[in-house]
């Protein structure tokens, strides 16, 4: 028998949890305002800063990261392709177009309503992608994300055109480039829905694993394939729309996190889904912290940092030698 990597999932989970906790505390302490965690106890001003700005920002990063990682995972299961995620499937761009149209046509509507519109648009855009991606030959797995990226680009161009017409380009860039610097208490709470979707994903983890085995295997095991597709579509669309509306698009999270977790721990989602969510949180939080300190006291949006970090990791994933011939 050849060498088997003896996995210690519990230890990995412990390490992941610890890392996330450290990042969480670091995120609470990094920023422009005078602040140290020790002073919170007896300094009401510091406590205010913590509660109004730092904590919401940190929570928003954690929630968005977990949500996006899970969305990527589900997307990969539905499309049966390891290289798709909301920003490489037109989902995020459709959400952008949706929120733009909502802003134009229903200026008086509340944020949740607009988010709902954005989710609907994301769902429509993603359905078109999934239906079309099906027609690409399964022997060429790289065509699917390529198709998705250009498809997203076309939708993005439509959004740019509309925004430019309505003189809303400024707004559009808020949605296209993720940035946590505007997150305050009262402005991010919608993101808690992302936590809900993570919980749903955990509940149906086994079903998702079986879906990844293919349509025939899942029907053979008595899974309602069409319904699972729809559920996945809803979850992915809602998560994407939420992040786009609240903090703006963050690319690559949904792509690199599930791929790396899969390499380390396999694809039995019952055991890995929590790790995927936690690693997504950690990655986004880490990139946000980098963006805050690299040019202190100015901030670099997390979307830009992630474009560099995630892009590099993605290229590495593409060109690394496969583990088996």
């Amino acid at each position: 028998m050849t060498i088997i990597s003896v996995d210690t999932p519990t230890r990995r989970r412990l390490v992941a949890g610890l890392g996330l906790a450290i990042l969480f505390l670091a995120s609470l302490s990094v920023g422009v305002g005078e602040f140290s965690l020790a002073r919170v106890v007896n300094d009401p001003e510091a406590l205010q800063l913590l509660l109004i700005s730092r904590l919401p920002r940190t929570l928003a990063a954690v929630l968005a990261g977990a949500g996006l990682a899970i969305a990527g995972l589900i997307m990969q299961t539905l499309a049966q392709n390891r290289f798709v995620e909301p920003s490489t499937a037109g989902t995020a761009q459709s959400a952008e177009l949706g929120i733009l149209l909502a802003t134009l046509l229903l200026p008086a509507a509340s944020l949740p309503i607009k988010t709902l519109v954005a989710s609907g648009a994301a769902m429509a855009g993603t359905s078109v992608f999934l239906m079309t991606a099906h027609r690409l030959p399964p022997t060429q797995p790289f065509l699917v994300p390529l198709f998705g990226i250009v498809y997203g680009g076309v939708i993005g161009a439509a959004a740019t055109f509309a925004a430019w017409h309505a003189d809303l380009l400024q707004f559009l860039s808020v949605w296209t480039n993720g940035d946590f610097s505007g997150v305050l208490r009262g402005r991010y709470e919608l993101l808690w829905f992302a936590a809900l979707t993570v919980a749903i994903a955990w509940l149906v983890a086994d079903r998702l694993t079986i879906m990844a085995l293919g349509r025939d295997a899942s029907i053979g095991l008595g899974i309602n394939h069409a319904r699972m597709m729809q559920l996945g579509l809803v979850v992915v669309s809602v998560i994407s729309a939420l992040t786009v509306v609240v903090v703006g698009m963050i690319p690559f999270v949904g792509l690199v996190v599930p791929n790396i977790v899969s390499r380390l721990m396999g694809d039995n989602l019952r055991g890995t889904i929590v790790c995927v969510a936690a690693s997504g949180s950690g990655l986004v939080l880490g990139c946000d912290i980098i963006g805050r300190i690299i040019r202190f006291p100015y901030e670099i949006p997390v979307g830009t940092v992630m474009g560099v970090v995630g892009g590099l990791v993605f290229l590495w994933l593409l060109f690394r030698r496969p583990d088996h011939a």
């Binding site: 690299i294 830009t304 290229l315 060109f319």
Partner: peptide
């Protein structure tokens, strides 16, 4: 397919690097 995808990702990467440098 691999080449195309790598190219597209390189494009995204360089655009991000470009705006990162711009902000720095």
């Amino acid at each position: 397919g691999l080449m195309l995808l790598a190219g597209v990702i390189l494009g995204v990467l360089f655009r991000s690097l470009h705006s990162l440098l711009a902000r720095l």
